[in-house]
């Protein structure tokens, strides 16, 4: 008898769908993936749902409602390996901006009938609720890194995903440093590699889609930005985007907020 194919499931929480779309964007590999794993639960692609437990769960999105805070435990219980995909699942996502404001004021400013809205004070990463086996970064994730994670899972090894900064990618590609050459503020020195240093190759500064690198020196980068003319509120906003709830970025944005004149 042929060995059973591992069962793959994709679960969505608060998010834009872009990271699970990255799986559908593997046009050349999609049918091959479908041959190696059983796509057991992937609602964006199929109405056929095979019951759990699942061998691999890809989880997109952050936890923002009481119902989702319950649901993630169910997902964990029926998943042997749980991998979060993207900035929402890994660092709260752009909706994590609520964490710095009064969410009740947000509700009443967007919705006419606030009592219908069920929401939590904060948008939190999956790992704050359940054990996570691997966190894949990015807003959105990189297709190549997703394939690496799937391949590693199928072969039973750890994914090989670097945690060094974006600067390594620029140097390797021979992209001229936008900060040194043009004085363009760039988050590359504190941001994890993974996108292929896209923004500098398009003559703009990195804006931090992949979240903090391993041991980032945000204070040193902030001082450099200030020397180039950035104001404190600019630094607060720069650290407060798609990975605002990631600890080093949150600490940096709060530090600059307190220092605002």
């Amino acid at each position: 008898m042929a060995p059973r194919r591992p069962k793959l499931a994709v679960f969505k929480f608060a998010s834009c769908d872009g990271c699970q779309l990255t799986l559908l964007n593997c046009e050349d590999e999609l049918l091959a993936i479908a041959g190696e794993v059983e796509i057991a639960n992937f609602l964006e692609a199929s109405r056929a749902v095979v019951k759990g437990p699942y061998d691999l769960a890809l989880v997109e999105g952050s936890i923002t409602t009481p119902e989702d805070a319950e649901r993630i435990h169910k997902v964990r219980r029926m998943s042997r390996t749980l991998v979060t995909i993207g900035a929402c699942a890994t660092a709260g996502g752009i909706q994590g901006l609520r964490n710095f404001k009064d969410v009740h004021e947000f509700v009443s400013s967007v919705y006419a009938t606030p009592e219908y809205i069920s929401t939590l004070e904060a948008s939190t990463p999956i790992a704050q609720h359940v054990r996570v086996d691997f966190e894949l970064r990015g807003c959105p994730i990189s297709r190549a890194q997703l394939l690496e994670v799937l391949g590693a899972f199928l072969r039973g090894r750890r994914p090989n995903i670097p945690t060094y900064s974006l600067c390594f990618e620029c140097k390797r590609q021979g992209t001229v440093c936008v900060m040194v050459a043009h004085g363009t503020p760039c988050l590359g020195p504190v941001t994890q590699a993974g996108c292929g240093a896209l923004c500098p190759s398009y003559h703009r500064g990195c804006y931090g889609c992949f979240g903090p690198m391993e041991s980032p020196n945000t204070a040193s980068l902030g001082a450099r930005w200030e020397a180039m003319g950035a104001a404190r509120p600019d630094l607060v906003r720069a650290f407060r985007t798609y990975n605002a709830a990631a600890i080093p970025f949150r600490a940096a944005s709060e530090a600059y907020e307190q220092q605002e004149p």
């Binding site: 769908d17 699970q20 752009i94 400013s109």
Partner: peptide, 26 residues
């Protein structure tokens, strides 16, 4: 789940808005 884009866009720089609103839909 609602994500409150209209609320947290307030206070952002106008040049940031195209990148932020892109995140409404992948």
């Amino acid at each position: 789940p609602p994500r409150f884009f209209e609320a947290f866009l307030r206070g952002r720089d106008f040049r940031e808005v195209p990148d932020i609103t892109a995140r409404i839909c992948g």
